[in-house]
Every structure is written in structure tokens, then in C-alpha cells.
Amino acid sequence: MTENTLKLKLIQIKEDKYEIKGENLYYTYALDMLKYIGTTDEVLRDDLIYDIFSHWITQNRFSNQQLETFLFICLDNQHLMKGIGLEEEDTVFTRTFSALIIALILYSNNENSFLSQGVIAETTNLIVEYYTKEADLRGYVDKKGWAHSVAHGADVIDELAQCTILKKEDLQKLLILLKLKICQGKYVYIDGEPERISIAVRSIFMRKEIDKGDIELWLEGFKKYKAMNDSSIEWYHQYINITNFFKSLYFVLKDYIKEISILDEIQELITTL
């Protein structure tokens, strides 16, 4: 199926309230959608492919085996890892929208527990590798739509953090990963990335495996960036990203966390960094 043909068919599917005749066709269409998940046509990619995938997964249109098949496709070298490390290249759309589909599948797994421990472990390792190597930090790209790698990656980590088979060391690894993305100074986040990262951090903090001491130690690690003040533009960008993150984190956490001292420490970081 060509890209234009798929677009016309998906427009009709949305007009038909996400329903098609023939249960087996949902899977067939989904495989075609994954072929074009990285199109630079933002309507096809975001408004149609991602939107329809989201509806179909939440409507249980796919079997557990089919969802696992989609997961492995999204994790492969032609999807999540396609062009990894490149900057300002169109391959970013394939990576970041594959990440969103992975997040949807993990959400479904967190509701129904159909992925094995081994599959989740492999997924976690690949997400860590992806988020570490992702260098294209752009949010919205003119005429092509959302790239948003940092936000989409945080969405996946948010769902991973809720996988109960992840242990303390896994969760700590995810916190380190998120800190690295927060503390970069190459690019100032302007498209809501700090809030999306904050939501992922909250999911990790809410796990019983993570205690107050773990949280305090993680927060303490940000103080070293204050000592790195060298008046460079990179340091200033880093300062803006960290400060905006903690402002978001405070409001994301305040109705969830019981330890007032944690909120106090976050407030202190906002004012002293």
C-alpha cells in the first residue's frame, strides 16, 4: 500500500469512528501503518497513524501476540534505532513515533500483564540505549510536525517505570538516564519536555522500591551543576533546563508525595541553582 493510499484509507477509518469491517484487517492495517510511522507528513504520522493506533490498542483490537509483534518491530534498527545519533535529520520521526507506539504497548501490558520478564528486560535495555544515544532534541519542526524525542522517550520511561518486574537497580538506571537528558546544555527545551520528564520521574518515585534516601541522593546530584558555573552559553542553557524541570517536578509531585522534606528540597534547588 502506498503512503497516499494509506492516508486516504485512514481518513475514512477515522470518519467511521475507528471501525473497519473484518477483525483480521486491524492487524493488516497496523503493519502498514508501522511502515510509514516516520513519514514527514505530520497529518498521516500524528493525526492518523498514532491516533488510530492509540484507539485500537485501548479498544483491544489486537491480540497479545500481535502487540508483542508490534513491539519488536518498533524496537528494531529500522524503527527506534533508525539513524540514531543523527541530528536534524528526518529519521528522528521514525524513532520518536516508534517510541510512542512502544509506550502504548507498555501501557496495555501494565493493564493486562502479557509481556514476559525477558521481553520487558530487553525492551528496557533498548530504551536505555535509545534515550542515551538520541541526539536530535528538537521539539516541533516547522512543516513536519512533532519530533519531540525527549518527551516521547520520557513517555516510554513513564510506562516502563510502572512495570512491576523492574527492580530497584533498573529504576535507578532510569533516573540516571532522565537526569542526563535534563542536564544537557546544547538545547533549551521549549515544548513541554520538563513536564513530561517530571511525570516519568514521579512514576519512579512512586515505586515502593525507591525510598526517601534514594530520592534525596538523586536530587543531591544536581547540586554539582551549580558548581560548574563557567558563564558559558552551554552552562546557561543547562541552568534553564534544570530550573524549569524542578519547577515542573514540584507541581507534578505535590499531590502525590507524602514527604514534605522532598518538596522543600526541590524548592531549595529551584532557588539556589
Rank of each mutant, 00 (worst) to 15 (best):
L177E: 02
K21S: 15
D214K: 04
Y256R: 12
K179S: 08
A154M: 00
E19M: 11
N4Y: 08
K143H: 13
N4I: 11
W218L: 01
A154F: 02
E195Y: 11
L269S: 02
T40V: 14
N241W: 11
T123G: 07
F62N: 04
K35A: 07
N112S: 15
L137S: 04
T96V: 06
F222V: 10
D46A: 04
T164D: 14
A135Q: 09
K208A: 13
E42F: 12
I240H: 01
E195F: 10
G185L: 07
S231T: 12
Y140G: 02
C74W: 04
K143Y: 11
H79K: 07
A103S: 15
A103N: 02
F246K: 06
E129G: 08
D41A: 11
T96W: 05
L177K: 09
N110F: 06
K144V: 00
M206V: 10
Y187C: 07
Q117F: 12
L44C: 08
L180D: 14
L180V: 12
I199Y: 07
G38H: 06
T272A: 09
Q65S: 14
C163W: 04
L126V: 00
H237P: 08
V201H: 05
D142C: 09
D155S: 07
K247D: 12
I11M: 13
R202W: 08
E87S: 10
E234W: 08
H55K: 15
L8F: 11
A151D: 02
G185C: 12
C163N: 11
K186E: 15
K173S: 15
A147F: 03
I13Q: 04
Y239W: 11
K247S: 09
F222G: 04
F245V: 09
K223T: 15
F246C: 06
D41L: 11
L115N: 02
H148E: 10
A161N: 06
Q12V: 13
K258N: 13
E265S: 12
K82H: 11
K82S: 10
G145P: 00
V252G: 03
F246Y: 08
L160D: 01
D47I: 07
L104A: 05
Q238C: 14
E259H: 11
L86W: 02
R202M: 13
T40P: 07
F53T: 06
S231Q: 13
Q12A: 14
V188R: 13
E111W: 08
I240R: 07
M228L: 13
Q267S: 14
I120S: 01
E209L: 10
K224F: 10
T91L: 10
I37H: 01
D136R: 03
L75K: 02
E15H: 12
D264E: 15
T243E: 03
E193A: 08
W218M: 05
H79W: 05
G185K: 09
S261N: 13
D47T: 09
Y29W: 08
A147M: 05
E89G: 07
K133N: 14
K181I: 06
E15G: 12
G213S: 13
E122P: 05
F222N: 01
W235K: 08
T91F: 12
F245P: 01
R138D: 02
S198P: 05
L44D: 00
D142E: 15
I120K: 08
G139S: 08
T58P: 05
S149Y: 02
I199P: 03
T132F: 03
K179G: 03
L100H: 10
S203Q: 12
N60H: 14
G83S: 10
V201S: 00
I233K: 13
A99Q: 02
E268S: 15
